[in-house]
Design a protein around this nucleic acid. Structure first.
Length: 463
RNA sequence: GUCCCUAUCGUCUAGAGGCCUAGGACAAUACCCUUUCACGGUAUGAACCGGGGUUCGAAUCCCCGUGGGGACGCCA
């Protein structure tokens, strides 16, 4: 049996971080077992589904690099099939028409809540041997309900949570088709998973309660029940449920905020799953190691600081050209011409182990592309008479030394000796003049990449 | 309210009855490195929710509390 997993988002918004982790785990499981990963768009909620959201999900998956082997399938395109199955169930007596109006159901629910009972459909239209059903009211379009077993328990061995048992007495006859004939989620999922030969359903924890219903339908259909694995939730940095207002929930936000997809993926992999003490690993490694046994059953809190650290690790080992390209893209968005100054690849090499994200990297590269204007305060504190004198000496030496780091360093030492100063006394003013800030990587390296013309031009303004 | 899930440092987690004086990582603190700021290195502090069992022995198994989460739609 080849493993087939699926990711089945509903296109009512962007791909969010919890969905991304679910997708990652389902994807990894299929990859790990040489199976297929299927993408299915659950768009039966016509009112809330949008083509933009479908695109956002596809974009998010692509940015993460989670490629599907089949699909995307769209549930709206499978309507005839759902209707066919509903017809079969109606004929077989595993489903029936119900004429109770939404208003009546609301009233029923309120009454039950008032009596502190679990709200549920009371089965008034459910056919039973010897039971006399009311006459169908005229002009009312019925919904179709699943005839759920009333006795016994539904049980499954959850890949993450272990054995879960729920009594059928807790379940009611849920609606599988609306009055307008469109099928509902719990039903579509079942038909899809069945038709698509899904062997392992890896999804969010919020579906645990749907599972017994789905199993019952599967059994009524005579279908094979897949293995289920329910992933717990991801909580926000503040320990609260993720919310659009307080947290970055869209995967694309992370791109915007300067995270590398592999860093996010690595972080997400470790959120709720572990492999001993391993923290930093490639997706190839992850796929080899991934298993359901080591998934945590309890909810995990998102920790931006750790993501930042991971991102910094990946930034350090990323190729200079890639980093330069990413930074250039960000600089361009700020209206800065990334081609205007020093070669960005070389600058990026200088800064990549000091940045935690690509925006910070872009910040660092900016002074290499534009004319810098140190603040008056910075000029006052750092560009003293003595400093300016030393910079003048240095300027003349830089004007005709060999242009490579060692030679530049040597020239700086000569300047120190000539002026009787210590390195920081010259290096810091030089940084201010060259970059508009008192900190930078090794100053001789900075001078080298900035280039002689630019260095002399900037020095001439102050020295 | 009912049902379901869950509980190890601040956070992510290791831990499958003795290997636990509870390990790693992020964060914190200190020191080292240093041409500034970072990076990096070293070190330190920091946890088994509470109560009952089971057992020679429990972070690990069971029960009850408590905390947290989820579900209870003609949403997905």
């Amino acid at each position: 049996m080849t493993v087939r997993t699926r990711f089945a988002p509903s296109p009512t918004g962007y791909l969010h971080i919890g969905g991304a982790r679910t997708a990652l785990f389902a994807w990894a499981y299929a990859r790990r077992h040489g199976g297929q990963f299927i993408l299915r768009i659950e768009d039966t909620d016509v009112a809330r589904s949008t083509p933009e959201a479908v695109q956002a999900i596809l974009d998010g998956m692509q940015w993460l690099g989670l490629a599907h082997d089949e699909g995307p399938y769209y549930q709206m395109q499978r309507m005839p099939r759902y209707k066919e199955v509903i017809g079969q169930m109606l004929a077989a007596g595993t489903a029936y028409h119900c004429y109770t109006s939404p208003e009546e159901l609301d009233r029923l629910r309120e009454e039950q809540m008032a009596k502190k009972e679990k709200p549920r459909y009371d089965g008034r239209w459910r056919p039973e041997p010897g039971k006399l059903l009311p006459a169908p009211p005229a002009g009312v379009a019925p919904v179709v309900r699943f005839r759920n077993p009333t006795e016994g328990v539904v049980a499954w061995d959850d890949g993450v949570k272990g054995r879960i048992e729920i009594a059928n007495a807790e379940l009611d006859d849920f609606i599988i088709a609306r009055a307008d004939g469109t099928p509902t989620y719990n039903f579509c999922v079942v038909v899809d998973d069945w038709d698509m030969g899904i062997t392992h359903v890896i999804r969010g924890d919020d579906h645990v309660n749907n599972t017994p219903r789905q199993i019952n339908v599967l059994e009524a259909l005579g279908a094979q029940v897949p293995q289920y694995a329910h992933l717990s939730m991801i909580l926000g940095d503040d320990g609260q449920k993720l919310s659009k207002r307080r947290n970055s929930v869209a995967v694309t936000d992370y791109d915007e905020r300067g995270y590398l997809p592999e860093a996010l993926l690595n972080y997400l992999a470790r959120l709720g799953w572990s492999h001993g003490d391993d923290e930093v690993f490639s997706m190839e490694q992850f796929v080899q190691w991934f298993d359901l046994d080591h998934i945590t059953a309890s909810a995990a809190q998102f920790n931006t600081e750790k993501l930042d650290w991971l991102n910094a690790q990946y930034l350090k080992s990323a190729a200079d050209t890639r980093l330069a390209g990413e930074a250039a893209r960000r600089l361009a968005r700020r209206g800065i011409d990334p081609e205007a100054g020093a070669p960005l690849e070389k600058v990026a090499a200088l800064y990549k182990d000091r940045a935690t994200n690509l925006n910070e990297l872009a910040d660092a590269l900016e002074p290499f592309c534009v004319v810098v204007h140190p603040s008056a305060e910075m000029i006052a504190t750092h560009l003293t008479e003595a400093a300016r004198g030393a910079l003048k000496v240095l300027r003349d030496k830089l004007a005709d030394c060999a242009w490579e780091k060692a030679a530049i360093g040597a020239v700086m030492k000569e300047t120190l000796a000539a002026c009787g100063m210590k390195m920081p006394q010259v290096a810091i003013p030089l940084r201010v003049v060259l970059l508009g800030q008192p900190q930078s990587p090794a100053i001789d390296a900075v001078v080298e990449v900035l280039g002689r013309t630019e260095v002399l031009a900037r020095l001439d303004q102050y020295a």
